[in-house]
Nucleic acid binder design. Structure first.
Length: 204
DNA sequence: CCACGGATTGGCT
DNA sequence: GCCAATCCGTGGA
């Protein structure tokens, strides 16, 4: 069965704004990843902002390297990196070229092609309710489920392989803020955003 | 060349 | 809640 989506892609100008604004406004939008004729989809429920100019926790803080160069390309690119020997994480680059700003996508609520995500994550097609909640509730987990890796680094969100739909309801989402997770520098900045009480958020 | 540590995860206590 | 796994990128000698 083919599923279609009636929402529009977020325009390039959406990404070319302040990283904190984009991190907050990405909540409730829908991440789409097309691969092998499949359309993976999930509602973004948790994000973190990283700012190359003021934020020591940002990969871009100490300047451009081969690893982080996508962060300097300006709003509208996908920055994917490899970490802890096992995991990929995906970010949406924001702001102007040279700024080194990006939003880490930390969790999504899966809404399409869930069975393939299940196979990608657990190498089996039948899972428990608990395993469903663990399918995409972390930055490494959602990349595994959506089959996102370094080949997707520097992808343009205006293209058709990976993009984000403006799926926000008219009703305002209830948004919570907290310190970011898993970092050792600039630890006190309240730059993590998540949809309050959503079951697919990685942590309270 | 080598040492260090990481925007994590999952398994075990 | 704690901690090992795992390996590439980065920076210093």
């Amino acid at each position: 069965m083919k599923t279609t989506f009636t929402f529009d892609k977020l325009p390039l100008k959406f990404y070319k704004r302040d990283v904190l604004t984009v991190a907050r406004e990405l909540l409730g939008t829908t991440l789409i990843r097309k691969k092998d004729n499949l359309t993976f989809a999930g509602i973004i429920v948790e994000t973190e902002a990283y700012d190359g100019k003021t934020d020591q926790a940002a990969h871009s803080f100490n300047g451009m390297t081969k690893r982080n160069e996508t962060m300097f390309k300006g709003g509208g690119y996908l920055y994917v990196y490899f970490t802890y020997g096992n995991h990929y994480c995906c970010n949406v680059v924001t702001g102007n070229p040279g700024g080194g700003c990006a939003v880490l996508i930390r969790a999504v609520e899966p809404i399409n092609e869930i069975e393939t995500m299940t196979i990608n994550r657990y190498s089996k097609s039948t899972i428990s309710d608990k395993e469903l909640l663990n399918l995409t509730n972390g930055p490494g987990k959602l990349c595994k489920a959506f089959s996102i890796d370094l080949k997707d680094n520097s992808a343009e969100l205006s293209d058709d392989q990976i993009f984000i739909l403006n799926s926000k309801n008219n009703k305002l989402e209830n948004i919570s803020t907290s310190k970011r997770i898993g970092i050792s520098k600039s630890v006190d900045l309240p730059w993590r955003f998540f949809i309050t009480d959503n079951k697919f958020v990685s942590r309270k």
